[in-house]
Every structure is written in structure tokens, then in C-alpha cells.
Nucleic acid binder design. Structure first.
Lengths: 339, 339
DNA sequence: CTGTTAGCGCGTTCAC
DNA sequence: GTGAACGCGCTAACAG
């Protein structure tokens, strides 16, 4: 293994000159810089990042804390796209990516310590569910963080939050379906998180603006990306005295499952009953009938998360909250009830 | 930031004693070990991994080189599941995961250097496509590597290859479809990689065992997880003098697309024409009709990759090639032609 | 412009 | 059983 010392000896200069040359220090004339770099190259020099990190106290790398459904993890349909776009952008800016083990989530300090020991410059927190104590501690720390989909009053001004325009998206979706004549829409909500609140607000607002009083019997609690409660919730809704003509599901994934469940009950999707999802998974376009849903821009979410983290690291301020545009995908899973 | 020096001072011992205590050295009596560790804990000590790595020359971490479709990256339907299972297992064994930037793939030495500079213990190579020169160099190096889905004669005995039983899976799939009376099956192959060769072999073998001579006009070249050539290939096949009754697609994703294309042409899937995929994406079960395909066990692939890499790191030998079981998912996208 | 030198935090050898 | 001291490879004063 060749070190800068070896290069210094070989090139007849001192180690600091080599160090400067490698770092493109302005103190050195370009000619020497170039010469030394070429020498290093041909000697097969490889910088020792551990040594640099030890010396400088930082490590030009960021961590990703995937805080999503245990069953999906990094293969989550939505978050994997965000992760990918984030990683690409960070790599382009010469940052390395660390996958942080969920193991370290056990307790608050362990996590923070494990991050500090890696000298990470920042952390991307993908929030499938609410923040735990340990994540809160991380956010409160001096390590720059970006939280995707996990806004919380407590943490604003301590981190940067990024989400889609959930409220607006749901408002638009609901409005579109109301325009098709539906008046009795049920909403199987996801868990009690920020994004859920936003979507419910958008949903209620659209109803009210159409002069419809939300019927509380049409709200039931489901789970995001979890099929276990789908059937049960459908059963509950369909057994109501006044069953809904359209059902909103927490996401596309559960809506896909609903296709099957409803069909087994003898319903024709988009004819006898209408169904809508959320997220806009690409595969939804292949379903028959195509799913009506709200598409989130995962690439943009990931890129924006990266750009925001880069800004945070370099001390540039941004709005604490960034909401990214979504758009309604109009499929055939919602029929028209107009005469 | 508290160091072992601080702990030593506070505890009235020397740094080496602290170092030993923290590393559970057998040289120390348990009592002192415990006492010092407790002190470290309450002082908020965080080990400096850079220093340890500098000192020991290794870094208890592995890299992942995602060498798959540019468009999908880590969000690839298949590889993201492998990645997730791999990461979980490695984390359980206290290894950290590094996402290696595809940027370093530019040239051979850059990659190797970047890996060496991180002191990685090993690398998982997810091969969506054929190895480039730079990856070959990595495999030939002394860094332990695991290659998923990228077997190649040149690299056997220099790395560990892991794949599904592609040949057997395709053999079973084909056999099942032959049993349904199909005699003219077309195969839109993926790119010219190892897994493709295997699948084609399984396909041909099944035909031959049924006394059918493969018709070369029924093989066309497509692309994995790439929709751009699907329509064109379907058109080619359907315009043959003797069009196929069943079409195999490179994967489920392209098969999903085919549903739409064929429907637009007026075909009813699983009635007028039969379709089969490969991979067994979960969402395929929600399509109507359900897709007949071969399911790969992504969790098992990921876990096996991790176990094999761990063995390789610790010097334990394994077979150079491990083929993991698959099974045919029998959907309704293939109809019976039996009388 | 360049060289000398002092650590960064830790593991480890060699004394005691 | 424990401590003193050296050095891993590098950066950044400081000195020339």
C-alpha cells in the first residue's frame, strides 16, 4: 500500500507538498501539482479515507435511515424510488451513502453515537411511520437531517421536512370524483400520521366545498402497504346502512388488493363500485381497469431531499417545509354516476 | 467529544486499559472491564471508527455495487428486495452497508481504489447486465465479492455467484404450458446474459423432451424491465406465418405491458392468446387474469448472498455457484388448448 | 512557495 | 494485571 510518504520520497518533495498537490491547494503552482498527481497515479496511490476522516473529523458521507414498514424496508414501492433518486444526486456531488441499520434504533443514544462515530455529514430520514424517541433525538442533534413524509410540529425548525402535496392531491382527487356524481365516498385511512391528516383534510375540504357534510361512518382506519385489514374494512363499509359508491384506499397497493376482494364479492370495479388509491405506482397503469389515484413524484422527492441536505450541510437555509407537486391519474376504476 | 483518554483520566487508569476494557480483552478481569465500560457509557463515549479503521486497516463494512438498469437503480422491483434482505442480514452481523456510486465505474482502477480507500471487507455485486472491465478487475482483486445473477466463465473460482434456478424454472414453466396443449410458444428473451442463456436452455430442453423441435423464428430479442421494445416484438411474432399461441416475456414487468398492448389489438389474455412472465412480482397476482410466471425467492437470494459474503470474509469456503429454488406460479394468463 | 512537525483517536508491543 | 510509548496516514499550523 502506497502512502503520501512514499510519493514524497519518490518525488523528492515533502509530504505536505504531496498532500497539498492531492488536494489541489492554491498554494502550489499548477505545474508541481500536476506532476505529483501524475506520480501518485502511476504509483497506484489510494487515499486512506479513515486517516483523512480521523484528521478532519468529517467523512464526506451521509446516512439513510429507513424508517418504513419492516416487511418492505428498502424495497418499499415508494421509498425505494426516493432512495434511488437521492443516492444518485448525492453521488453526483461526491457524497457517499451509508445505510443505517435499524438495529441502532433500539435506543436514542445508541443511534446518535453510531452516527457520530461515522462522522456523517447528514442523514436522510425516510419516515414510513411516526418518529420514535431515538429519531427525535437525532433530529434535535446538530447533525443536519431531512425528513421525508414525517412532518411533526415538534420538529419543525430543527430539520427540513419534505413531502408531497398530500392535502392538495386528495382535494383534487375527491373533487374529480365528486364531479362524476359520487356523493357517498368512504375513506379507509392509513395510520395516524402527518400525511394521513393532510389527506383527510383535503378530502373533507373537497366535500364541504361541494356542500356535502362528511359522514363519520365513512371513515375507517386501515394501514399503509399492509393487506391484513383490507378485507375487514371493506366488509365494514359495505355493511353500513348506506354503503358507499366509492372507496378510497390508503395507497395503491391496498387498492390493488381491494380489486380482488371486491371481485370475489361479485362487484365489477369501476361499474358496481368505484375504487381510488394513492401514490401512483407505475404498475397500477397495467391493472384492469386502470386505477384512479394520485401520483407522487418520487424522483423529485428524492432529488429535492438530496439538494436540501446538501444545502443544509453547507449552511444554506431553505424553507422548513417543502411540498412537492402531485397529480391525479384518471383511471377507469371510478365510474360516473351522472345521468 | 469524549475519547478513551478522557475515560482513562476519569477512571484513574491508562488508555490501554480502557482500550482493552472496551474490546473485552481477556487480559483484564471482568470487574475492571465492566466498571470502565459503565464509566464510558455514562460519559457518553462514542468510538471513533475512523481511528479504529486507520489503526486496524479494516472497517467492518461492505459495499453494494448496483449494476442494474439505470432507470431503476435501487428501486428495481427485483433487486431492491435482494438488497433489503442482504442489508438486514449483514446488519444483524454488525456489518455496515455502503452504497457504491456507479460513478466510480468509469474506469477499472478508480473503482478498486475507491473501495480500497474505504477498507471494505467485501462487495455485493448486483448484476443487471454483463460485467464491465472495471467490475472484472474488482472480482479479480483480493476483495471478497459475491455476484448475483452475473455468472461468467471468466470469473468462476474468483468470486461466489448466486442466482435462481433459472434453467430449471423455465423448464418447469414451459413443461406446464406444454401440458396445457400449447405447441407453438414464442420467447421474447432478455439481453444476452447468463440468466438468459440458462432460461433459453431450460425452454429448449422442455420442448425437446416433448418431441417438439424449437422453431428459431419464435425467438426474438427483447430487454429486461424495458418497455421500449415490447410492442415491436409482439408485432413481429404475431405477423409470423404461424403465430404463437403463447408468448414468454423477459420478465413480469414487460408481460404486464403486454397485457395492455395485446388487449388494444383485441386479444383477450388467457383466452385468445396466452402470456407468461418471469420473476413473480407480488403485484402480478393482482392483475386480471393473474400472470403465470416463475417466482424467484428474493429474500432468500439476499440472505444467501449475505451469508456467503460473511463466509468469504471469514475465509470459509462455499461452492462457487449457488442456485436457489424457484417455483412456477400458475395464473390464468395461459389457457388450456386441450380438447 | 515548500518543508518540518505535531497530533487526530486508537490498538498493541514491550516492559514492569 | 497494567502502563508507557509508538505509529497507523494524513492535514494543518508554523517556520522558513
Amino acid at each position: 500500500m502506497v502512502t503520501i510518504k512514499d510519493i514524497a520520497r519518490e518525488g523528492g518533495v515533502s509530504v505536505s507538498t504531496v498532500s497539498r498537490a492531492l488536494a489541489d491547494s492554491p498554494l502550489l503552482p499548477k505545474s508541481t501539482s500536476e506532476k505529483i498527481k501524475r506520480l501518485a497515479e502511476q504509483m497506484g496511490y489510494v487515499k486512506n479515507e479513515a486517516a483523512i476522516s480521523l484528521k478532519t473529523g468529517v467523512s464526506q458521507s451521509v446516512g439513510i435511515l429507513s424508517f418504513v414498514d419492516e416487511a418492505f424496508g428498502f424495497s418499499h414501492y415508494l421509498f425505494s424510488g426516493i432512495l434511488d433518486a437521492f443516492a444518485k444526486r448525492m453521488n453526483d456531488c461526491n457524497y457517499e451513502i451509508f445505510l443505517i441499520s435499524n438495529k441502532s434504533l433500539r435506543d436514542g443514544d445508541t443511534l446518535l453515537r453510531s452516527l457520530r462515530s461515522k462522522k456523517l455529514c447528514g442523514v436522510l430520514i425516510l419516515c414510513g411511520y411516526s418518529q420514535t424517541e431515538s429519531v427525535k433525538k437525532l433530529i434535535e442533534s446538530d447533525i443536519p437531517t431531512i425528513v421525508v413524509d414525517g412532518f411533526d410540529e415538534d420538529i419543525s425548525e430543527m430539520t427540513y421536512c419534505i413531502s408531497s402535496e398530500n392535502r392538495w392531491g386528495m382535494y383534487e382527487l375527491t373533487s374529480a370524483i365528486l364531479r362524476k356524481g359520487h356523493r357517498n365516498i368512504a375513506y379507509i385511512c392509513g395510520e395516524d400520521y402527518y400525511v394521513t391528516h393532510e389527506r383527510v383534510r383535503g378530502f373533507r375540504q373537497a366535500l364541504k366545498e361541494s356542500g356535502i357534510e362528511p359522514n363519520e361512518a365513512m371513515f375507517v382506519r386501515g394501514k399503509y402497504y399492509n393487506l391484513s385489514t383490507v378485507k375487514e374494512n371493506i366488509d365494514i363499509l359495505l355493511s353500513r346502512p348506506n354503503p358507499p359508491t366509492c372507496i378510497f384506499f390508503p395507497d395503491d397497493y391496498t387498492a390493488f388488493e381491494a380489486y380482488e376482494i371486491l371481485r370475489n364479492k361479485g362487484y365489477r370495479i369501476g361499474e358496481d363500485i368505484s375504487v381510488a388509491g394513492f401514490d401512483g405506482l407505475e404498475l397500477g397503469a397495467h391493472l384492469q381497469p386502470r386505477l384512479t389515484t394520485v401520483r407522487q413524484n418520487v424522483k423529485l422527492l428524492g432529488r429535492t431531499a438530496a439538494d436540501t441536505l446538501l444545502d443544509a450541510i453547507s449552511g444554506k437555509k431553505r424553507p422548513y417545509m417543502q411540498l412537492l407537486p402531485v397529480h391525479v391519474l384518471d383511471g377507469e376504476s371510478v365510474c360516473s354516476l351522472l345521468p
